[in-house]
Amino acid sequence: MASAEQTGLIRPLGRTLLRQACSHGGTWHAAGHELLISVNLSPLQLAEPDLLLAIQEILDHTRLPACALQLELTESAAVHSPPGLLDELSGRGIQLALDDFGTGYANLDALARLPVTSVKLARELVTGLDDPDNIAAAAIAYRTIQLCHDLNRTVIAEGIETERQYAALRARGCDYGQGFLFAKAVPASDITQLLAKGQSDSGQ
């Protein structure tokens, strides 16, 4: 079966998902919850000539601040993006993140040159931290985090599933993490309820 990327359906599908994510984000921001809304963009979406206009229209319509939107790009998509596109997105205040870093296409020069604010440490680099005797995995994770920090990039570890992985990443200075250890994916309505409960519990 062909994928949405192969058939080109990722273009309308991706735009619909971006609109829905920004709509939820705009609602949460209006309620006082300043969340960062992260949305993946595919290489085909990056090649769309009206991408900048479409994103701006979505932000205007949903009233989500540009700085509250983070677009996640694979390394290869970022490197091969149309000239000036990423700089234009960054210049508008939109945050950019390199997804699955450490397993893809970008070299160190590209990491330094691309206008990204965050780097998402690939699951493959996190899994090896479960083994306390895996010195190589620990060294790679530490050096990658250190390099990103030297370049003023925030590091987000993907696929954290165990307490050992979490502890190892914290000890090595990782900024943020995501994975089943913290929570599984839930519908937007569940997030709205959790945010409302948090306000209620804090007495706001």
Rank of each mutant, 00 (worst) to 15 (best):
G93F: 10
E124V: 08
A110K: 06
L98C: 06
Q95T: 15
T127K: 11
L125E: 00
L98A: 08
Q70W: 03
P115L: 01
S76W: 09
L111T: 01
N107D: 14
L98H: 11
Y105C: 11
C67Y: 14
A112R: 14
C67G: 13
R113S: 08
E75K: 10
V79A: 14
E75R: 09
Y105V: 08
S118W: 01
V79I: 13
G104R: 07
S118D: 08
R92F: 08
E124Y: 02
Q70F: 03
L121A: 10
R92T: 09
S76M: 11
D109I: 12
S90C: 01
S90G: 13
V116M: 04
D99T: 06
E75G: 13
G93N: 10
K120C: 03
N107Q: 10
G104V: 05
Q70L: 13
I94C: 05
L71M: 08
L125D: 00
T117W: 09
Y105Q: 12
S90D: 06
L96F: 04
S90W: 04
L96W: 08
R123C: 01
A77W: 05
G104N: 05
L125Y: 04
V79H: 07
A77S: 15
R123V: 10
P83Q: 14
K120S: 04
N107M: 09
H80V: 04
T127E: 09
E72W: 02
G84H: 12
A122I: 03
Q70E: 15
T127R: 15
S76V: 10
E75L: 11
P115C: 03
R123F: 02
A66C: 07
L114K: 00
E88V: 13
A122T: 06
T127L: 15
L125Q: 01
V116N: 00
T127Q: 15
P82Q: 13
G91R: 03
T127S: 11
L69N: 00
V126H: 02
L85R: 14
R113L: 04
L85E: 11
G102W: 03
L86G: 06
L85T: 12
S76N: 14
A112G: 13
Y105P: 07
S118Q: 14
L125V: 02
L69Q: 02
D109P: 00
L86F: 10
R123L: 12
A122S: 13
D109R: 12
D109A: 15
L96T: 08
S118N: 12
R123P: 00
A106M: 11
L96C: 08
F101C: 07
